[in-house]
Design a protein around this nucleic acid. Structure first.
Length: 748
DNA sequence: CCTCCCAAGGTTTTT
DNA sequence: CCTTGGGAGG
């Protein structure tokens, strides 16, 4: 009996098909990771392929680690020389070796989205762009999409002819590229794009990697974008041994440039591709699976497949509707709590939601109930101020060409170097076409620097000192020395006693990460390098920190949950406007992507699935009244177990409005949440508003709102200082708002 | 040059 | 609601 006997027929077929292009359409929970790992094992054991010749690309570092481990268990040896990593890590490894062939230093830094934003702000200032009219984020978004599609600034410019705003973007794109290169920095998208450019430009490098990676596997192929496709195609061009695994129904990253055509037209792009469908689901119960099938069936233009399971129906899917998000959270946390007193583990549970903002309320409840939990995503650890500061020191020491990093820390902690001085240095550097740090080293050439020169000198001396320590002491000690010599912790304490504590804990955490990095390098006999550490830091996703062994409840967005599974899953916030997001509601294509996201969510559950929604929810300080998500309505009723009367569809609309309104009334009169009265007092601002003389619309009128579109006025209540207007919008649901703010226009 | 305070604007999802 | 950025005063 061999390890391959445990596979089903289709899985085995996929494993045995080793030569030539192969597309595996793997439905959720159909054991695709099993197929990939067994396939790798088969290549090594039965086909005598050198592990060195195998490349497997996964979606997260975590998945990469798991895959390596599982192959290890199957093969027993050699798995360490298989190259398993994400697209981004793979590209960085290649670029660290060869990027000098296209005009960068191999010790380039990687800019995260914060860095990109800072750089873009600078650029807009330099180009005298009014950021009120043209947003930085618009430029960054356009540039990112361009890079996903491998469009260079020059090409962008050509396409922009006759279009003013595109020309504007082209101009910014040029400058952005120029400054990245000057800073010897790459953004996330560059990692892919530059690698492909390197391959295209340098046949020698390309051939080297083509020969090296004779067998290529790509997981989550439905979420690849154009540049990733190009990357893979180039690598596989010589031997054609490309195996991609994906599920078009789980394509959820279009906003990031994922091109669903990559999977839909794989067979055209790679002639003679074999296609294998995996349709047996090993994860979920029948009810869960049927619900998922029922939802996704409403999408068009998908590859036809239907998942089935040998498992029984299992429990019905629970549906709970609450008045407030607060009640929702309380219910869920209590249910988990009682489940755990009955013998379940915390890590049997996951709470999934559409937006990160939803996590906060759960967090409060978990803290109050003393239940261990972990929130994945949200504010990135490495984006915290104190962490970025310290990393900027390390970046400056590692690559002093990174102007952004140098400028960030030049006056952190405070050294009396002000904006005026920094600008003088900056101008001088720009004038002479040199880097910021370089300019600091020749201060006498900068006009008007005067008294600041001494301070700048000692800053340079400090950095130079640290550079000298590099290689002499461990990275951990270097970081400790930075913290001590700059008195960083003391300065934190001086500026704010309150959150200094939390920040110091974060710094300790960073020290731990450095130490871990050094230990891992030592264990794997890899060279410890500052660049190596910084790179690892730049490429971690929060999901990589998820540890299934640890006993905590996991909370994360639906996007983060892709590829994971849990015995009990809560899908919270199943409300139209939240999920599907109001951003997508009137675009059929976007709505389909939301539906796929819902499909992903449902199929995470193994045994128990609980859907919930809240009639009333605070979003950005505004109260929203939403209806039950349309996706829930797509689930056949006989799969659901719900409180009675919930689904009396005809009534539902009116009663929702009614109860919502009652709730609102209560909320306004009783103000039950005053405990959190903050000095900012958004409420106070509202009360300060003077009532308009009158309204030019009345109940029953059609009105237009700048964001929510057209709707019908349902009610107007005269408050002390303003009118409270209730409007049922055609697409955005029922909203209650103050007339002064809503600025409703009567539709003629 | 620094600090504090206020206003405005922004949130869907992320490697 | 929360963060960020700009402006005024010390």
């Amino acid at each position: 009996m061999s390890i391959y006997d445990t596979l089903n027929e289709q899985q085995r077929e996929a494993v045995y098909h080793t030569e030539g292009p192969l597309l595996i359409l793997a439905g959720a929970g159909s054991g695709k990771t099993r197929v990939l790992t067994h396939r790798i094992a088969y290549l090594i054991e039965e086909k005598g392929v050198n592990p060195w010749n195998i490349l497997a690309i996964t979606f997260t570092n975590k998945a990469a680690g798991e895959m390596r481990e599982r192959v290890d268990n199957l093969v027993g040896f050699g798995s360490e020389s298989i190259w398993v990593s994400t697209f981004h890590s793979t590209c960085v490894r290649i670029l660290r070796r060869y990027i000098d062939r296209i005009g960068y230093d191999t010790n380039f830094t990687i800019y995260d989205s914060d860095d990109q934003k800072t750089l873009m702000r600078d650029i807009c200032k330099q180009l005298n762009i009014d950021t009120k009219k043209f947003k930085e984020r618009t430029f960054l978004g356009a540039i990112s999409s361009a890079k996903d599609e491998m469009v260079t600034p020059a090409e962008y410019e050509v396409n922009a002819v006759g279009d003013f705003s595109k020309q504007m973007i082209a101009k910014v794109y040029w400058e952005y590229e120029k400054q990245l290169q000057a800073n010897n920095a790459l953004d996330f998208d560059d990692l892919l794009m530059k690698t492909v450019q390197l391959f295209q430009k340098d046949a020698e490098v390309l051939e080297y990697y083509q020969n090296r990676f004779r067998y290529i596997m790509v997981d989550e192929y439905q979420d690849t974008n154009t540049v990733q496709f190009k990357f893979v195609s180039l690598l596989a061009a010589k031997y054609q041994n490309l195996c991609v695994v994906g599920d078009d129904d789980q394509s959820i990253y279009k906003f990031r440039g994922a091109n669903i055509q990559n999977i839909l037209s794989f067979e055209e792009k790679f002639k003679d591709a074999k296609v294998i469908k995996l349709e047996q689901n090993y994860r979920s119960t029948g009810n869960i699976l049927n619900a998922a099938n029922a939802v996704i069936r409403n999408n068009h233009g998908r590859k036809d497949k239907s998942l089935w399971t040998e498992k029984g129906d299992g429990e019905k899917i629970q549906l709970h509707e609450f008045d407030t998000a607060y009640d929702e959270a309380e219910f869920i946390v209590n249910q988990i709590k009682s489940g755990c007193t009955k013998g379940n583990h915390y890590n049997d549970y996951a709470i999934l939601y559409r937006t990160n903002a939803q996590s906060r309320i759960f967090e409060e409840k978990f803290v109050a109930n003393n239940i261990p939990y972990k929130i994945i995503g949200g504010v990135n650890f490495y984006a915290r101020r104190e962490i970025k500061d310290l990393l900027s020191y390390l970046k400056t020491i590692d690559n002093a060409r990174d102007d952004l990093a140098v400028r960030r820390i030049i006056n952190v902690p405070k050294r009396g170097i002000g904006l005026t001085t920094v600008n003088r240095v900056q101008d001088s550097a720009q004038m002479r076409g040199i880097g910021f740090y370089e300019a600091l080293q020749g201060l006498d050439l900068i006009p008007g620097i005067g008294r600041s020169a001494a301070k700048l000198d000692s800053f340079v001396a400090l950095i130079e000192y640290f550079k000298g320590r590099l290689g002499k002491i461990s990275l951990t000690d270097l970081l400790k020395e930075i913290i001590e010599m700059t008195a960083y912790v003391e300065s934190l304490e001086a500026e704010d006693k309150e959150d200094a504590q939390a920040r110091i804990e974060n710094i300790d955490e960073l020290l731990n990460k450095v130490a871990t990095y050094e230990e891992v390098c030592a264990a794997e006999q890899k060279e410890v390098s500052l660049s190596g550490f910084l790179e690892e830091v730049a490429l971690v996703a929060d999901i990589d920190n998820l540890d299934e062994e640890q006993d905590y409840v996991v909370l994360m967005t639906l996007h983060s949950a892709k590829g994971l599974e849990f015995p009990n899953v809560y899908l919270a916030g199943m409300e139209d406007g939240l999920f599907p997001s109001y951003m997508c509601i009137d675009n059929p294509e976007d709505l389909e992507e939301e539906r796929r996201l819902c499909y992903v969510g449902i199929t995470r559950a193994e045994q128990e699935l609980v859907l919930s929604c809240a009639r009333m929810r605070m979003v950005r300080g505004e109260t929203h009244y939403n209806r039950l998500s349309r996706f829930v309505k797509e689930i056949p009723e006989d799969l659901l177990e719900k409180e009675e009367k919930l689904f009396s569809v005809k009534e539902e609309k009116d009663s929702a409005v009614q109860t919502a309104f009652k709730q609102a009334k209560q909320a306004f009169t009783q103000k039950p949440f005053t405990t959190y009265a903050s000095p900012l007092m958004t409420g106070a601002k509202q009360f300060a508003v003077t009532k308009e003389k009158g309204l030019d619309y009345t109940i029953g009128d059609r009105v237009r709102h700048i964001k929510f579109g057209v709707g019908t006025v349902k009610d107007i209540v005269e408050g002390g200082r303003d009118y409270e207007v209730t409007v049922e919008f055609d697409t955005a649901g029922v909203k209650k708002m103050f007339a002064t703010f809503a600025k409703l226009k009567k539709e003629e």
